[in-house]
């Protein structure tokens, strides 16, 4: 129903509410009204997010949603509200928008001619040396169904072009360029329902990632990426105390620290006529230990929150067109650069 009847858009409240441009002005204007009126809170608020039906001019379509515990707007009710509007307000072209104007320069934009990669991170259940499976609903730290973490990598044109083989012969091997390896290694973490381990350059204990030319034709270059990455924070100097309430979920090693030992495998295809990558499928798999809520210590500097060792899988692929989400770890994209 959503695909057929709506234009869906997903936004970050922190960005939209603060941006200094026409889009920010519009968002702040529409988000002044409370929903529902008795709750006295704006339509869009809160960490868990809100979904609302709205016209292009900014008129909300749900005034209330009976029975909805999340105070969201049920799309079926939004559609009823839409159909209740006069046809003159619903017809194509009925709403005329001004030009967007100058975009706030602080809004992150993908590099011109760059390559956007989509990243998914999942803590898996099972054994690395045995059978792995998706986590069940009850195998989460919260009340919801387990969802993979999501992030993006924005490669500049210079960085993705460096992936092309210097020697276009089948079997040629060369190192994964640092401009690609760095952002990829930074994403080998777990944002699924936890504050992932932040990897800095000094945490990269070793990495050996190579590309091999699998095939070269008149139209395509096919590459295989493989290798390993070993990441680790420094071991703590003092024994770790765990949060009592979370103890059963956590690693009992009193000298635990964040780490990830991963193997990577991937397949890339480059279209010589389109001069672009048409496939960039990479997976990483290994044992992971990382922070759950806070990066190691909270305010009393006593309690660690570490997830016990578990298999972590990371999948990287070309993002679908139009899916542009600012990466979480922009600052660590220079991970292997001096």
């Amino acid at each position: 129903m959503v695909k057929e009847h709506f234009v869906p858009v997903a936004l970050n409240l922190q960005v939209e509410a603060d941006r200094k441009d026409a889009q920010g002005e519009f968002f702040r204007q529409i988000n002044k009204a409370p929903f529902p009126e008795t709750y006295k809170v704006p339509y869009f608020t809160g960490a868990s997010g809100r979904i609302h039906g709205m016209t292009a001019s900014g008129k909300f379509l749900c005034k209330h949603t009976p029975g909805s515990i999340c105070r969201d707007c049920d799309p079926t009710i939004a559609l009823e509200g839409w159909n209740d509007l006069p046809a003159s307000q619903r017809k194509p072209g009925a709403v005329q928008l001004d030009k967007a104007g100058k975009i706030d320069p602080k809004i992150p934009r993908p590099p011109e001619g760059g390559l956007i990669l989509q990243v998914y991170e999942s803590r898996l259940a099972g054994d690395l040396k045995g059978e792995l499976r998706r986590r069940e609903k009850h195998e989460t730290f919260s009340w919801g169904t387990y969802e993979p973490g999501r992030d993006q990598i924005w490669l500049s044109q210079t960085d993705w072009k460096a992936l092309l083989p210097p020697d276009r012969k089948k079997g040629a091997r060369y190192s994964l360029p640092a401009g690609v390896a760095g952002p990829m290694i930074a994403r080998l973490t777990d944002w699924s329902e936890a504050n992932g381990a932040h990897w800095q350059r000094e945490h990269v204990r070793s990495h050996d990632l190579t590309l091999t030319v699998e095939d070269v034709s008149a139209t395509t270059i096919r590459l295989r990426l493989e290798g390993s990455v070993r990441l680790a924070h420094d071991a703590p100097k003092e024994a770790v105390r765990y949060h009592q309430a979370l103890r059963p979920l956590h690693h009992e090693d009193p000298r635990a620290f964040a780490r990830y030992d991963a193997q990577l495998l991937g397949y890339l295809s480059y279209d010589l006529k389109r001069e672009s990558f048409t496939r960039f499928d990479v997976v990483a798999l290994g044992e992971y230990v990382g922070p759950l809520l806070n990066p190691y210590r909270n305010e009393d500097r006593q309690n660690f929150y570490l997830i016990k060792p578990c298999p972590l899988g990371v999948s990287i692929e070309i993002a679908r067109p139009g899916l542009v989400v600012p990466p979480a770890s922009c600052a660590t994209d220079g991970l292997l650069k001096k």
Binding site: V2, H5, F6, V7, P8, V9, A10, L11, N12, L13, Q14, V15, E16, F44, T45, G46, A47, S48, G49, R50, I51, H52, G53, M54, T55, A56, L61, P75, A78, L79, W82, R90, K91, P92, G93, A94, V325, P326
Partner: peptide, 12 residues
């Protein structure tokens, strides 16, 4: 000539 479905999170 369609309505928007707007999903806003505190974080994207």
């Amino acid at each position: 000539g369609k309505p928007l479905l707007v999903w806003v999170g505190d974080g994207h």
